[in-house]
Nucleic acid binder design. Structure first.
Lengths: 352, 352
DNA sequence: CAACGAATGTAGAACGTTCTCCATATAACG
DNA sequence: CGTTATATGGAGAACGTTCTACATTCGTTG
């Protein structure tokens, strides 16, 4: 027995649960029990095993774990890694996970449905314990199908009627309303929204939600029943073209609400190049309150939806689901506005 | 036999390699061979198996694969997800991986050595096939120890003497030289570098390399044997404090080279707030040529080291190593300078 | 036609866990 | 003291692959 074991050790350097068991003089099952702190372990046994684990610097193989039970890993799917809002969500996820025994593995889908599907499948195949999907592109039915196989929390995906998975969102309708209300309060009446190009963003996406909120606030403010919403293509150079066209329009509005800081900041830049003064000629409000928006050079007013908090909340929801909850939860956070010079010239700021 | 099999199918909906084998009327081993396109498979067999795989929509379990052989996953470790340079590297990695059967899983270490270690261990435990470490913090000996267990390519980690793993870098010394040379060419003599705070970045890190290049270029230009290198702390608010202090120094130099766009852009912002004109009072060159630097509002000259390309090259190196190469490779790319208004006022640009 | 080698397919032992019984020891109770 | 409940530990079957031997078939060659 002992000889056999030594041979096994020599064949492959890896410290396995078996090595630990022999070292502690107990069974493999006992070690497993301690690892998962399962029922039926005496203090004495636990101590012996813990010591052995320590002494051998044993780490359970996640691959093997996944084959049978938990892998203690949660998968995070990002639609895009360039939008600076998304890293914030990751930070939130990691923050919650750090003190636990879970770890995050991230996949980037680059907004391609194909890749998104195959990444989700991979994560399931890895027997990850749960998934946080950030702004997924997939339709709700497909998500529901996946959710049968693995606990799922979707962030930035408005589908409060989903029963198979949870959703965590900032209230994007409200966020857009807040932006419009702020513009109204500054006295602007001539307001448009710049949104994402046609084919991007289905009905449940944050973009469409912001459009809905925009329309409602405009109507409520008595500014027409169908306010103007421009569509900006996502890829260069059409994106910049569309913005330039907007900026040089004769009937350009006095104020604009952009669906994302990403667009708002580029708009600010082009406005400067084209000699359109902000906010004198054009007031701009963005969305996400990214760190770039906060730069003195940029000074972009923006709706803040704390991606960090979203990530935290989503992770907690996921863990509770992994640990047994079955009823679906749909959480909405209320965003807030950060006012800066692009909205209205503040007194104490240095002139440009 | 067949009855047993059907019972197995009913117990768990999952389509396994066994299901495929029965469906195609071949052995499990045969299916495995086809999956890995191993030697000794006739066209007829391959066709039968492929059909069955298609018909059943079979996906091999990565967990089980990892237990025995390849998992066809490569792990990417990012030191930080906020630095916009790093997503570029990811884009490069994903670009190369997309047409292959490999997939990337990303872990974020947040610059914590502890977390970095445990993520690498996790990836090994998942039996990933190889690792791309982006700007790792760990010392070379430790990396070498890990490299025994799994193929490793380090990006942004200058250790050309490493034999256990590969490195892929932009030539950071040269990059810094290019920056200094550009400043010299514009007639500036009074040049300082703003680098990362003391405890960040060990000798092999890109930051230290840029310092070396800076010193060499300055000496070569006849500007003293120990040119000034300021250290900027990484965390707010000390970071901004240090920059303000620099900007308000009486003996402030006429030109500054920042180790990263991240710092350069903040510096630009603070300069504007404090009424320091760029480039008239202070010329600035950054590093990474991030998308923010390219904005008209920012217009920051920057050393471009194409993170995308770095990611691509690293991934190709990793795959070749996975497929058998053992001799280590150390690849250096040459960076280039993108000149913008922060370096010298260009004629055709609109004045601010 | 015997002998051999190449090509093709299969059986079955790993891989390192989890987890369901089971066995045993101890405590509690009448 | 017998019976029953409870607490503790262990045996061993999964889990879904890969991969090493080995068996079979079929040409080819001397």
């Amino acid at each position: 027995m002992s000889i056999e074991d030594k041979q096994k050790l020599q064949r492959n350097g890896r410290v396995t649960i078996r090595t630990v068991a022999t070292h502690a003089g107990v069974s493999v099952a006992a070690v497993s029990k301690v690892m998962r702190n399962a029922y039926g372990v005496s203090d004495a046994l636990r101590a012996r095993v813990t010591d052995a684990i320590e002494a051998l610097a044993y780490r359970p193989s996640r691959a093997a774990r996944g084959l049978r039970g938990r892998s203690f890993t949660i998968g995070v799917l990002l639609i895009d890694i360039r939008n600076p809002f998304l890293p914030e969500v990751i930070a939130g996820v990691n923050g919650v996970l750090a003190p636990s025994h879970y770890q995050a593995m991230i996949g980037v889908s680059d907004a391609r449905v194909q890749l998104e599907t195959s990444l989700i499948e991979s994560m399931i195949d890895y027997k990850m314990d749960g998934l946080v999907l950030v702004a997924p592109r997939l339709p709700s039915e497909i998500l529901a199908k996946f959710a049968v196989q693995i606990p799922i929390v979707a962030v930035g995906y408005h589908d409060a009627s989903a029963t198979a998975f949870d959703t965590v969102n900032a209230d994007d309708q409200r966020g857009a309303e807040i932006a419009v209300e702020a513009l109204l309060a500054c006295g602007y009446r001539d307001i448009e929204m710049l949104s994402l190009g046609e084919r991007q963003g289905h009905a449940v996406s944050v973009v469409r939600q912001r459009e809905i909120g925009f329309r409602r606030a405009m109507q409520r403010g008595g500014l027409g029943s169908s306010p103007a919403i421009g569509k900006i293509p996502i890829a260069s150079p059409k994106r910049e073209e569309a913005m330039r066209k907007f900026l040089s329009r004769k009937d350009r509005p006095r104020a604009v609400f952009c669906w994302s800081d990403l667009d708002a900041i580029t708009l600010l830049s082009l406005a400067m190049e084209m000699g359109v003064r902000v906010p004198e000629d054009l007031a701009v409000i963005g969305y996400d309150n990214s760190s770039t928006a906060a730069l003195g050079l940029v000074n972009l007013a923006s709706v803040d939806q704390s991606g960090r908090e979203l990530g935290q909340v989503a992770t907690r929801a996921l863990i509770s689901r992994i640990e047994g909850r079955t009823a679906s939860e749909h959480i909405l956070q209320i965003p807030s506005l950060v006012s800066r010079n692009s909205l209205i010239r503040s007194g104490n700021s240095t002139d440009r």
